[in-house]
Amino acid sequence: MSAPTAAVGEESKNIWMGGVSPMNVSYGKLMMWFFLLSDAFTFSALLVAYGTIRFTYMAYEGTGDAFAFSQEYWPIPEKVFEAAPFLHGVNLPLVFVGIMTFILIMSSVTMVLAVEAGQRMDKKAVEKWMLWTLLGGIAFLSCQAWEWTHFIVGTDNGSTLPNGTTLFGASLVVNQYGPPAFADFFFFITGFHGFHVFSGVMFNFLIFYWAVVGKFERVGHYEMVEKVGLYWHFVDLVWVFVFTFFYLV
């Protein structure tokens, strides 16, 4: 892509005058990067908006043990996300989200191993690592489905308002954990991220399928694995930020 320009002459010393690719990446990868940059702005906007709205509400002042859900102040995330499947009633703050984080990091590793295999034309290894990546993506989505269900259904006792009504779980209008905006941001931020994971799983499946039918061998390279890999790592990257700013802070 960059080599056969030696004979062009003096003018070509300016790498921006054509004939070479100054960024030293293919068109497709560059455009994927710019798409991801724009996507980064979208996710930044969502997370910063979360911070803004959180700042407009009272923070809980008091000890962690005495914490109770209230419409008056923003909830502490580790008090909201403290359940895990098959362990009903056990208090496990952030454990399940931690597991989800590990799943996504692992699937990012298997993706980069698929990229490495593709660079040396190893069809079998690409198939193997794409399958693991697919498995990780599907596992993450399943965990998220469980988490959403638990969030929407709510805790056993719900939380009782000063006027005597008891709220269970969450909708876009009202929720038992805190101000309505808290659940709204949960649904929008983790939902938008989850949709990215879902699209990523679809792309990964396509890559896996194309690897199996030998499309990349016919084309002569596995660059498509790298492009979709960039997208998949970005999804992992976004989750790193969501984990910090939604669950930890």
Binding site: S108, V109, M111, V112, G229, L230, H233, F234, D236, L237, V240, F241
Partner: peptide, 9 residues
């Protein structure tokens, strides 16, 4: 984020 972007990506 640095490790993911610099190495994985």
């Amino acid at each position: 984020a640095f490790y993911i972007v610099a190495e994985f990506m």
